[in-house]
């Protein structure tokens, strides 16, 4: 009886749909529209079943061009060195990251290149991979434990932030009110950059921070927050942002309010901000060698796979470069050629 009941139910449902030409037409139209609009989108694929070893690359969401550049550089380097790649993003969610580590372990990856989802929350996942015999090569963000990852290669965020802070102070003539946009509170780099900025800015008694808010690295949030801050502090002279997407959001708010004379500086060296600097919009940013770091991680992973050691200390840092209108033309996709 139940089987029969189910069959009739299913048939009825199908009849109902099949007879209705409009449903099919709507479905077909949707598919065609989707094709037309997404034809130019590409997607990376991995070839399964080959004898090549696999390097898994895990980063935050590529929505931020910085992480996109990281992914692309690591993937290109690994493929050039003869590896298969699997690119995943954890969207700053440690739980998702942990599941992606499980994937890497079950696919018997030879190495993991990771830009992690939290300095403390990621330790367990990296340990899990280590226990399974897979070395992790951390890029961009450190974890709060040594001896778990095979390498931690980061840009020197503190050094970069002092460069950014110095330039910001110089642009402000060491005086006036300013606002600071902080990154995601759970990201170590948000804190380190803010400390770096303040190690410089707090030395000038004439400079006063009148507002400090987190915009979670997000462009729209930065836009909305700066619009509001401008209401409370219309006399503001500068905005120092913890990264470039927030600097872009801040600049959009200033542009809308016809206050483009307010000084904005960022951090990352993303192509959009570099372009803005060249058009004298945003005044400065700090370039992180994202591409170089990602490539370094792959090179060291290769050495580790072949020799069982990277031959380098676990913690390595690459210095950042200040980008101003003078040298912005030498920056291309997170690489400085000067």
């Amino acid at each position: 009886m139940p089987a029969k009941h189910n069959r009739i139910h299913w048939r009825e449902a199908m009849n109902g749909f099949g007879r209705d030409r409009r449903s099919w037409r709507a479905l077909a139209a949707t598919c065609m529209l989707a094709f037309a609009l997404f034809a130019c989108g590409t997607s990376s694929t991995t070839t399964g079943g080959s004898a090549k070893k696999l390097i898994v690359i895990i980063t935050p969401s590529p929505d931020n061009v910085f992480f996109k550049a990281e992914q692309d550089a690591a993937q290109a380097k690994a493929q050039a060195m003869g590896y298969d790649t699997l690119v995943l993003s954890h969207d700053d969610d440690p739980t998702k990251q942990s599941q992606e580590f499980d994937t890497a372990i079950s696919r018997k990856a030879a190495a993991i290149v990771l830009d992690n989802a939290g300095a403390d929350a990621s330790i367990a996942a990296v340990q899990k991979a280590k226990d399974a015999g897979i070395p992790s090569f951390l890029i961009d963000r450190e974890i709060n434990k040594t001896g778990v990852a095979a390498a931690q290669i980061v840009s020197n965020n503190y050094q970069g932030a002092t460069l950014g802070g110095q330039q910001f102070a110089k642009l402000m003539n060491q005086s006036g009110n300013y606002a600071e946009l902080l990154g995601k509170p759970t990201d170590t780099n948000a804190g380190i950059r803010s400390q770096g900025y303040h190690s410089i800015l707090d030395q000038y008694p004439g400079m006063k921070m009148v507002a400090q808010q987190s915009a979670n690295w997000d462009q729209t949030q930065a836009l909305n927050i700066v619009q509001t801050i401008l209401q409370a502090h219309p006399d503001i002279k500068g905005i120092i942002a913890g990264n470039d997407t927030m600097a872009l959001g801040a600049y959009a708010a200033l542009k809308g309010a016809n206050k483009t004379n307010v000084i904005v500086t960022g951090f990352d060296g993303s192509p959009d901000v570099v372009a803005s600097i060249l058009q004298s919009g945003i005044k400065a940013t700090v370039l992180q060698p994202a591409a170089a770091i990602a490539e370094q991680a792959v090179v060291q992973a290769d050495a580790y796979i072949k020799n069982g050691s990277t031959g380098k200390p676990e913690k390595q840092s690459l210095d950042c470069v200040l980008v101003t209108p003078d040298n912005a033309s030498k920056v291309n996709n997170f690489t400085f050629s000067g």
Binding site: G41, P62, A275
Partner: peptide, 11 residues
């Protein structure tokens, strides 16, 4: 939306 730009931004 992600596929449209392969994760990137239209600046």
């Amino acid at each position: 939306a992600e596929l449209r730009s392969n994760g990137g931004t239209f600046p």
